[in-house]
């Protein structure tokens, strides 16, 4: 599946306990708290490892998420907005992460800029329900996708470094 660095990062993300989706009222709040705890821990780990690469936040119901992710290539920072909805069947099914601004620029996307995950992701997610959460989705889904696609998009000239972004 993933490379050593990803495996290590994933193993350091705390696992979630509550098997609950957005259609469950109180249990969903508990699940959301766990999601935030895991995300906060993951971002802290990333900062410590000098590999801070995304931010996420949600609406107050925790059903719609949005944020930024970035990728450093040749010392330049390429930043993208990301978004996704929590499907009603979460956590049995992982959300589909979208980077709308890259829609149409790579074949590794479905309509609406939803990133196309590897064949390995779905079985891995299914085997880890309900322990995997959004932090795991970032680490195992979006992270590896950016690492493969962004350098390719830059090489093809489909993504340009924006001046106002600090490098």
């Amino acid at each position: 599946m993933a490379d050593e660095a990803t495996r290590k990062a994933v193993s350091e993300i705390p696992l979630l306990k509550t098997n609950s989706g957005p259609r469950d009222k109180e249990l969903w709040v508990q699940r959301l708290k766990e999601e935030y705890l895991a995300l906060i821990k993951y971002v802290e780990n990333n900062k410590k490892a000098d590999n801070d690469w995304f931010r996420l936040e949600s609406n107050k119901e925790g059903t719609r998420w949005f944020g930024k992710c970035w990728y450093i290539h040749d010392l330049l920072k390429y930043e993208f907005d990301l978004e996704f909805d929590i499907p009603v069947t979460y956590p049995a099914t992982a959300p589909e992460v979208a980077i709308p601004e890259l829609d149409g620029k790579t074949a590794k996307m479905y309509r609406g800029g939803k990133i196309c995950l590897t064949d390995h992701f779905k079985p891995l997610w299914a085997r880890n329900v309900p322990k995997f959460g959004l932090a795991h989705l970032m680490a195992l889904g979006l992270g590896p996708w950016l690492a493969v696609e962004v350098p390719d998009l830059i090489a093809k000239g489909l993504v340009q470094h924006k001046e106002q972004q600090s490098s």
């Binding site: 708290k33 996420l56 322990k131």
Partner: peptide, 29 residues
């Protein structure tokens, strides 16, 4: 048996913080 990574498996800790507080903490990062 899905839950077989051992009992020492690292799960999210119990927290006194409310969801709003956690959201705010994440936003400040």
């Amino acid at each position: 048996e899905r839950a077989t990574r051992g009992p020492e498996e690292d799960t999210v800790p119990e927290t006194e913080q409310s969801l709003e507080e956690l959201m705010a903490q994440m936003r400040k990062m």
